[in-house]
Amino acid sequence: MAEKESREIATKEKQQLTKPQEQTRPGRYYVPDVNIYEFDDSLKLWADMPGVKEKDVNVTLKDGVLTIVGQVATDMYAGLRPMYTEYNVGNYYREFSLNEDIDDSNIKATLRNGVLELELPKKEQARPRRIEVRSA
C-alpha cells in the first residue's frame, strides 16, 4: 500500500458566474479561486486562471473596485473530438471592492503557470505607521 501523503490536493468544482451580466461574446464565465494576503505596504492577490495567456488578462481598478478578467484560449481545441470530459472551459471574471487606498498607477500583474499574481501597493497614507509614544 502506498504511503499516506501528509496533505492531498482536493478538486473543487468550478463555480459558474451567475451574476447577470452583458457580454459581447456568448459563453460561460467562471469565478476564479483567489488568495488575498495583506502586507505592510501592499495587498497581494493570486487567482487561478488555467488556460489563460498573458495577453488575454485584463485588470482594472476603478472607484475602489478591482476587476479581473481572463479570456481562455480555445485555439488548441481545433479539430479535436472529446472522448471523456470532467470540466468545462470558460473565461474568468471576478470583482472585489477594496477598502484599502491603492496606488493604482503602480499595480503589478504577472501570469505564471495559469496563476495571475497581482501586487497592489498601498498609498503612502494607507500604510501602517508606528506612532512614537512620548513620555511626559
Binding site: E5, I9, D33, E38, F39, D40
Partner: peptide, 24 residues
C-alpha cells in the same frame, strides 16, 4: 504537488481559496 508560500511577512489574509497539496 502544489505549494503556496508567498514571500515576506504578511499581516494576514483576506481570502484563501487556492488548493494546495500533493496529488497522484
Amino acid at each position: 504537488e502544489r505549494v503556496f508560500k508567498p514571500d515576506g511577512n504578511g499581516l494576514g489574509y483576506h481570502r484563501r481559496e487556492l488548493s494546495e497539496g500533493k496529488f497522484s
